[in-house]
Design a binder for these strands. Structure first.
Lengths: 154, 154
DNA sequence: AGGCCATGGTTGACGCATCAACCACCCGTG
DNA sequence: CACGGGTGGTTGATGCGTCAACCATGGCCT
């Protein structure tokens, strides 16, 4: 309805385009590497990482909140991982609805093997591209955007 | 194999975590908004945008290269979009294998309606969070990472 | 006790992305 | 002409993410 929508100015456009392109390529490459040399999806990776960091046994919803996912996503994810033997589910005695999700030995082994490879790729593809000042700047910028998002409706 | 893998130092880790978190939330929110108020996926959006920018009619592979996708992805995407009437396919007379992909009137209308809404969300969620200097910094950083990625194997 | 909403978690359908295999046609070379 | 390799494009299987609906239990309030 707006006859002259407020398009981005060239600098804004350049920043946005560059960011999008970079983010797509970087994330894409990283997840394909993880997949290829750990036989794990990024989702598998982060779930196992957070889960084992927390001792390898957690309530479903706690884990879900920890990684900031919605429950349905986690439910599907855990189901797939359970089928592949990376985690198990146990009933919660205190709460009839609840479930614990538990890293299996295979799961622990998988993440311990994957983690150093993963960090090495992060370093190679991302960290090594930038100076520490640039990293700091990016960190600050990211946090500003995050803070902004939380104040924003929707 | 490495007894003491080179973990990231705290500043590096902070930058990486912040970036990842920001990127996930931002992209997630933006694509849900696009979906919700244009009934289009981000993939639909970018394909239609690039296609109409280029006049609304392009060879399949040219379009694929333009958006930097792999052909199978584009093939599936175009098939879905064709089914929904956003684009059409035409045979290429000069090259028996080739295909033109063409924006339909419905496709043009859809993108023209979606574009201002999209840019408004980009502005609201991202641009408005940052100063012009920060945008410039992010743009430079993105380009450095992109350049680095291109030199990197894999 | 009964009723009600919130919480914890699952399910199914659907669209998207990737991989690997495949088909069809073009073109250069012998 | 044949044939071999490269290009253009499709297909099917599989896993991931979202949405909406759903079920079961728990906790509160009267």
């Amino acid at each position: 309805m707006n006859a002259t929508p407020r398009w981005l100015n060239p600098e804004q456009q350049a920043a946005w385009d560059g960011f999008i392109r970079m983010q797509e390529k970087l994330i894409g490459r990283l997840s394909r590497r993880v997949q290829a040399d750990s036989h794990m999806s990024p989702a598998d990776y982060i779930v196992l990482a957070k889960l084992t960091e927390a001792g390898g046994r957690m309530r479903f919803m706690d884990l879900t909140k920890l990684v900031e996912w919605e429950k349905s996503r986690m439910s599907h994810q855990v189901a797939r991982m359970a089928k592949r033997g990376l985690v198990g589910k146990e009933d919660c005695p205190d709460d009839g609805r609840g479930a614990f999700i538990v890293a299996t030995p295979a799961g622990r082994e998988a993440i311990e093997e994957a983690a150093p490879v993963h960090v090495e790729h992060v370093r190679r593809l991302f960290i090594d591209a930038l100076t520490q000042e640039e990293l700091d700047a990016l960190g600050r910028i990211s946090n500003r955007v995050l803070a902004h998002l939380e104040k924003q409706p929707d």
